[in-house]
Design a protein around this nucleic acid. Sequence first.
RNA 1: GGCCCCAUCGUCUAGCGGUCCAGGACGUCGCCCUUUCACGGCGAAAACACGGGUUCGAUUCCCGUUGGGGUCACCA
Length: 471
Amino acid sequence: MASASSSSVVTRFAPSPTGFLHIGGARTALFNWLFARHHGGKFLLRIEDTDKARSTKGAIDAILDGMHWLGLDWDGHEYYQSQFWARHADIARRLVERGAAYRCFMTQEELAAERAEAAAERRPFRIASPWRDCAPGTPTPDAPFVIRLKAPHDGETIIDDRVQGRVTVQNAELDDFILLRSDGTPTYMLAVVVDDHDMGVTHVIRGDDHLNNAFRQQAIIRAMEWPEPVYAHVPLIHGPDGAKLSKRHGALGVDAYRDELGLLPEAVSNYLLRLGWGHGDDEIIAREQAIEWFDLDHVGKSPSRFDFKKLENLNGHYLREADDARLADLIAPRLGISDAQKTLLARAMPELKARAHTLNELADGARFFFADRPLKCDEASAALLTPEARALLAAAHGRLGALAEWDAASLEAAIREVAEGSGVKLGKLAQPLRAALTGRTTSPGIFDVLALLGREESLARIADQMVEPKE
RNA sequence: GGCCCCAUCGUCUAGCGGUCCAGGACGUCGCCCUUUCACGGCGAAAACACGGGUUCGAUUCCCGUUGGGGUCACCA
């Protein structure tokens, strides 16, 4: 285990591998990562596979993959909580020895009865185990038992949370929760405290849903007389409707943000950073800048809603900033094109990426370059190909065929000439030309399209549309 | 329901007693640019939940109401 250096910051991200790395977890990871990097400390990764039945290899891979994609590298190897069960059990025993915990032999039936009684009297259920205060040496049944924390009944517990502020709870609210299950495995509550301590974690930055757990965990920490970490409970992310983030919203794995929504990691990362944290009026914040600026003081206290529109807008920004060859590589699989075609794609990228917000849109906009002749025109573009338009295309074809230089500037001059010569505005020729060349009504600038497509392909596509198809 | 937390434009947020008839961004709506669509530029509408205090003065501090969220397992 990492040695606990007293002065430097150690954070951790501790996902449970029961699904994918969801967006809330990704933000928690990002905050932990940024905080550690900002302070020149360490960022550790611990897989909380305490619940063996629900933990899967696939889920673990998905988490690691998501972290890599977002550029969140952790220091050292990843930890697996299940490897430390012996240590957890040992701490549980020591807690019993210290009189801070006890073996509870209550059966499920006895527990259920207590619960039912509480429900009948309409009072909150809080376990009252007869085993809590039995004298040492009391004979114990030869039966399964759990180890419960002897939670304090009096006084109050205070957590000075770096995000939520000072939070106080009456100790009477705390119950004797289970530390060690009857099968000898630790519960999350015990494991998290022991591991955080052993890993030297100084700052626990996690979702707000753990705030209530912090009080219980603190009870264990105090019983062991361990140093208390600094807590920072970050508000949760909600769906657009304010309700808990569901599958329908954005509770997708980060892999879906990449593969299905076609987003760039830098965009997702920037968006997540600004969700719940702010730095004045700054919106576009690069990674290095984020490391320099990030702090816990400016993390908001209220939950925020997920806004896909803003994420998309941000993605559009990063798309325009991205390297052309990289983008070509990213969408080539979606287009199913050859390496040779990828070269053309990269050359077209400056024009293409200006009008896309996602990789999906980017691929859609690029598709016409690689379509087979004769092009299938969509409805709107087909409507443009009137007899008059076809005649203009024929005129353009003649002029273009005689062109010496096939570059955007020469092409523009030639096309403008044809339009003028025919007594029509440029648009009257440009739109049918677009239809013939791309099969669509929207595309990059038509002169760029001609230049990119090349003389042969361009002339062939125009020729295809010069006469109305039979049938 | 008990306990805990939260509350500025539709959304993300700036604001840490006067500089705020509240600033930025996304979204929306105009206009410009223009061969289309984008990009870009300019502009508009749009918020301090409500009620009490404290104060010379509250978006900022305190209390309550309302609304929202979290949590109450041998899950994590």
